[in-house]
């Protein structure tokens, strides 16, 4: 998993299959690693869907928290994406 995180430091995006090939393992193993890393808060799932607080209308949203969010029902089939959470 350290190797996976290290690999992603270059800022490029990869599919699960690419990651598996680069790390010399299987997509199932990458799935397992992603599950663990997400669980410990090292990566997070990218949400393309509307935020529950405003449903995409941005009415009554706190601008500090919701600087424009996805319209309701938008981006339902963008697959799964994870991004690395910066450790401060």
């Amino acid at each position: 998993m350290k190797r996976l995180l290290e690999l992603l430091k270059d800022g490029n995006s990869r599919t699960i299959e690419q990651l598996a090939a680069e790390l010399g393992t299987t997509p199932a193993d990458i799935d397992r690693q992603l599950g663990f890393l997400e669980h410990i808060g090292a990566i997070r799932r990218v949400s393309f869907s509307a935020q529950k607080t405003c449903g995409g209308s941005c009415k009554g949203c706190n601008p500090a928290e919701c600087r424009g969010c996805m319209p309701k029902n938008a981006a339902q089939n963008m697959g799964e994406m994870w991004e690395v959470i910066k450790q401060h």
């Binding site: 992603l8 490029n12 990218v46 309701k72 029902n73 697959g79 994406m81 690395v84 910066k86």
Partner: peptide, 28 residues
């Protein structure tokens, strides 16, 4: 440092749900 690598699991192709699509487009 804001840019970080992403991991993508590309979704399978599937037929569109026209009703939901039109509701979304009209709403927008």
């Amino acid at each position: 440092e804001d840019r970080c690598g992403m991991i993508m699991e590309l979704p399978p192709y599937h037929k569109p749900k026209w009703g939901a699509l039109f509701r979304y487009v009209l709403g927008r």
